[in-house]
């Protein structure tokens, strides 16, 4: 077995190099697609964090939306366009809001948790739709980002965004992998199985769930910042429940064993979406629904379980 201390950073470096390498050869539309897929993958990763504790959030669109609005409003109000600063702000706002929401949400389980997260997201949707000073239902445009003073345009902008997205996705993924492997990470899995027991072992289930929810909000906000900058526009739809539904879809598709699988699933979904938009414009949801049913039926633990099986087979040989 490989020394686990170096395993995570090493995998991160390898994956990052591979992603950037791919960026040099793929066309611009594919780069945009990959940027969006990774950004949304970050949000889905948040759901996966919660899934490990047995919860599904049907409202991660809330943080996706907040991140995107932060990137849009900051440029308009303060002229900040630096992507790193915007990311930090987006994460910060998300984390602060999540800390408040977590107090309420950590007492709920199962369907109640799902519906409450959904309703929080829909409250934001409703509020933003009515706020005409920031665009109402039309939303607002987001200025192109700068990168530590560097202001690229055209293909360079697309590539810079892609590069940045790969970087933060890999870093976030690495940290979350470390968390999954940690003592707290194992406790989360135990909560999924038997919350009562965990409480009787002296661990606080509520604080574990709050921690997971706040982490999920952080990556959700980060994903939102990137998506807003990549699209160049943000509107309340980011917080609509069907947007959150797609994140849940990615999380279910990937399962909660592998972080790579989350991003891979997100990429698969974006590719399927592009092709159905092109060839079957009216049956995108049909494709998505059938796909979802097949995954649930055939891969109850998601794509990640396939990865794990392969890895285990590799280990035993």
């Amino acid at each position: 077995m490989m020394n686990s201390r170096f395993f995570v950073p090493l995998s991160c470096v390898i994956i990052f190099s591979a992603l950037v390498g791919i960026g040099f050869i793929i066309p611009q539309w594919a780069m945009f697609l990959a940027t969006m897929a990774l950004a949304k993958g970050l949000v889905a990763l948040g759901i996966v964090i919660l899934m490990r504790a047995g919860l599904v959030s049907f409202g991660q669109g809330l943080y996706f939306c907040i991140g995107a609005y932060v990137s849009g409003l900051m440029a308009n109000w303060t002229g900040i366009t630096d992507i790193i600063l915007l990311s930090i702000l987006g994460i910060l706002v998300s984390v602060i809001l999540a800390t408040v929401c977590a107090k309420l949400l950590s007492g709920y389980r199962g369907i109640f948790f799902a519906m409450l997260t959904l309703s929080l997201s829909m409250i934001l949707y409703g509020a933003l739709s009515k706020m005409s000073m920031i665009g109402g239902t039309d939303g607002l445009n987001v200025s192109a980002p700068t990168f530590l003073g560097f202001a690229p345009e055209g293909r360079a902008l697309g590539f810079s965004l892609y590069f940045y997205t790969c970087l933060v996705s890999v870093i976030a993924g690495g940290f979350i992998r470390v968390y999954f492997n940690s003592e707290r990470g194992l406790t989360a899995l135990a909560i999924r199985d038997n919350e009562l027991r965990v409480e009787y072992l002296g661990s606080s289930v509520k604080s574990a769930i709050s921690a997971g929810y706040i982490m999920a909000a952080a990556v959700g906000g980060l994903g939102g910042v990137i998506a807003g900058l990549a699209i160049g526009h943000v509107d309340p739809e980011y917080a609509y429940w069907t947007t959150s539904g797609e994140f849940v879809f990615v999380a279910i598709l990937s399962g909660f064993f592998s972080i790579t699988a989350v991003f891979a699933s997100s990429i698969v979904l974006e590719i399927v979406r592009s092709f159905s938009n092109l060839y079957f414009p009216n049956t995108w949801q049909l494709v998505l629904g059938v796909f979802l049913l097949i995954v649930i039926l055939l891969l109850p633990n998601g794509l990640g379980s396939l990865f794990n099986k392969l890895r285990r087979r590799g280990d035993s040989e």
């Binding site: 009216n282 995108w284 949801q285 049909l286 998505l288 629904g289 979802l292 049913l293």
Partner: peptide, 9 residues
């Protein structure tokens, strides 16, 4: 939810 998506289309 999957059924819902399918019915939509």
């Amino acid at each position: 939810y999957g059924i819902f998506l399918i019915l939509e289309d």
